[in-house]
């Protein structure tokens, strides 16, 4: 898989817990890579190995760490590009959730080889949604949950989120459920279609 994903995990670890922890974690995981390059390819199992080593080190479950990674992608200054690309989904949190259907195709347009999981959004009512994650990587549901939580804050929307499993055909897939309570709960962060250049 693209190093972009590996690098996200690395940046999360370094920015949140420091270089010392990161170096210990890669040594523990035995992956022989200290610096992932976003535009190179690395084996998929690196992700699991590093995530497991990091979870052990932090005394958290891999799901908890994955959720933190999701939140980090949206909230950390260094990952502003990710937040901006997600905000293209819509002007409200609800629109954003509904746009997750297209995320896979959108990303494919920009980076055809990234191969993010396909997401399928179901709207149960105006305020209740679920997102099915079609992926072999079982951690992605937790990452999505972290992203959703942080994006709800970004829009200033109050939500309740949960992650479960459900069967779709013969597949066992992850299902994130979203209950919208208040759309104007807090002031969200701004978003312009074109990024303001720094120094202006």
């Amino acid at each position: 898989m693209y190093g972009l994903v590996h690098r996200a995990l690395q940046c999360f670890s370094q920015d949140t817990y420091g270089d010392v922890v990161w170096n210990k974690v890669v040594a523990e995981a035995g992956v022989q890579v200290h610096e992932y390059e976003a535009m190179l390819f690395y084996p998929d199992h690196h992700l699991d190995d590093v995530l497991l080593a990091l979870s052990n080190h932090l005394d958290k479950t891999p799901a908890q760490v994955s959720e933190d990674v999701g939140a980090y992608l949206v909230t950390h200054q260094r990952m502003e590009a990710v937040r901006r690309l997600l905000r293209f989904g819509g002007a409200t949190f609800e629109e954003f959730v509904l746009s997750l259907d297209e995320l896979h195709d959108r990303v494919k347009l920009a980076l055809p080889e990234l191969d993010l999981p396909e997401l399928e959004v179901e709207a149960h009512s105006g305020s209740s949604f679920s997102v099915l994650v079609k992926s072999e990587h079982h951690r992605f549901g937790a990452v999505l949950l972290g992203i959703l939580r942080a994006m709800a804050d970004d829009f200033g929307t109050l939500v309740m989120l949960d992650l479960g499993r459900s069967t779709q055909g013969s597949d066992d897939v992850e299902r994130a459920t979203i209950e919208l309570f208040e759309t104007d709960f807090a002031t969200g962060r701004g978003f312009g279609l074109v990024a303001e250049e720094s120094g202006r």
Binding site: A81, R84, L85, F88, G90, A91, R106, V107, L109, A110, L111, G192, L193, V194, A195, E196
Partner: peptide
């Protein structure tokens, strides 16, 4: 878009401009 603070609501849904901006940024 920058000068006049346009948002996605300023473009028709059938207009791929916003998708183009997304692509430019990505």
């Amino acid at each position: 878009v920058q000068r006049y603070s346009l948002s996605s609501a300023d473009f028709a849904p059938a207009d791929p401009t916003v998708d183009m901006l997304y692509l430019i940024e990505a």
